Simulated assay, not measured.
Amino acid sequence: MTIEVFEHPALSSAAAQLSALRAAAGRLGVPDPVAALRHLDCSPASISASASAVDTGALGMTAAQEEFRAGVDRAETGGSSEAFGTWADTVDGQYGAAARAAASTAALGVRIAAALDELAKSAAAEVCSLAEAASAAVDAVLAGDRSAEVVSEVSAACTAVLRTVSAKVAALTGLAAELEPLTTPAVQLS
């Protein structure tokens, strides 16, 4: 028996719990319930780590903006020209926009990681429940029973797993829409 490894631990656990259903599905030629889980595999911990790195970058950008603003204030107090002040205000605004965009991106990463984690965990729980409900029929198929009743129950369980995964994948559409703003540069540098 092959052990399936997923990025998300709940899906790895679910795959292990679906192994008998998978074996029965293979004997009956119905869709592989474990393969369906691949469509939800994710690593919320990696996304959270990336979001944290972006947030750290945002803090660095804010600190750089503060240092820049302090330098501009010193330069303007020293009698610098008005043109320098206008240019400095533009650059200062760009620093601020970049820092806000980075902080917003980090917050979005945290939300997406949490949503993916919840989707994976809830899918794992649901599919394990489906497999458990069909365990008697699965055992019967694995023992050689091909009666219409047990074949139908195993097939229905596999189909229900696929529907559950499909519903969870469909829920990702909202997350994809949240990522759309990230496809355009947050700041246009002058």
Results as ranks from 00 to 15, higher is better:
residue 136 A to E: 13
residue 62 T to D: 05
residue 115 A to K: 06
residue 95 Y to A: 07
residue 47 I to S: 09
residue 56 T to A: 15
residue 58 A to Y: 01
residue 112 I to A: 02
residue 136 A to M: 09
residue 151 V to G: 01
residue 88 A to V: 09
residue 2 T to C: 00
residue 172 L to P: 01
residue 16 A to Q: 11
residue 28 L to N: 03
residue 185 P to D: 14
residue 105 T to K: 08
residue 174 G to A: 09
residue 137 A to K: 04
residue 35 A to T: 01
residue 141 V to Q: 00
residue 187 V to R: 08
residue 130 L to R: 02
residue 25 A to M: 06
residue 94 Q to P: 08
residue 124 A to N: 03
residue 41 D to M: 06
residue 73 D to S: 15
residue 22 R to I: 05
residue 49 A to W: 03
residue 18 L to V: 04
residue 156 A to V: 12
residue 48 S to Y: 05
residue 15 A to V: 01
residue 48 S to E: 12
residue 125 A to F: 05
residue 12 S to R: 07
residue 182 L to C: 08
residue 51 A to F: 07
residue 18 L to I: 01
residue 52 S to D: 10
residue 106 A to K: 05
residue 171 A to F: 04
residue 93 G to D: 10
residue 12 S to T: 15
residue 7 E to R: 10
residue 148 A to I: 12
residue 158 C to M: 03
residue 106 A to W: 05
residue 185 P to Q: 15
residue 160 A to V: 08
residue 165 V to Y: 02
residue 37 L to V: 08
residue 142 L to W: 07
residue 183 T to C: 10
residue 131 A to F: 00
residue 125 A to I: 12
residue 19 S to I: 00
residue 15 A to G: 06
residue 141 V to P: 06
residue 140 A to G: 12
residue 125 A to Y: 00
residue 16 A to H: 09
residue 120 A to T: 03
residue 111 R to Q: 09
residue 80 S to M: 13
residue 126 E to T: 12
residue 87 W to Y: 12
residue 152 S to V: 01
residue 190 S to E: 14
residue 42 C to V: 01
residue 116 L to W: 04
residue 18 L to A: 06
residue 38 R to I: 06
residue 83 A to S: 12
residue 2 T to L: 13
residue 42 C to R: 04
residue 24 A to E: 05
residue 27 R to D: 09
residue 128 C to N: 08
residue 173 T to H: 11
residue 187 V to N: 04
residue 23 A to I: 10
residue 165 V to N: 01
residue 64 A to L: 15
residue 90 T to D: 11
residue 188 Q to L: 15
residue 77 T to Q: 13
residue 128 C to D: 09
residue 87 W to P: 01
residue 188 Q to G: 14
residue 157 A to Y: 05
residue 14 A to C: 01
residue 92 D to N: 14
residue 161 V to T: 01
residue 8 H to I: 06
residue 76 E to I: 11
residue 154 V to C: 00
residue 28 L to Q: 09
residue 148 A to L: 08
residue 73 D to M: 14
residue 68 F to S: 11
residue 141 V to G: 01
residue 181 P to L: 14
residue 180 E to P: 04
residue 26 G to E: 10
residue 176 A to N: 07
residue 65 Q to V: 07
residue 140 A to Q: 03
residue 138 V to R: 08
residue 100 R to I: 13
residue 18 L to G: 00
residue 95 Y to F: 15
residue 148 A to E: 07
residue 17 Q to I: 06
residue 101 A to Q: 08
residue 58 A to H: 02
residue 82 E to A: 15
residue 44 P to F: 11
residue 158 C to F: 00
residue 177 A to R: 10
residue 115 A to S: 11
residue 136 A to Q: 14
residue 98 A to E: 11
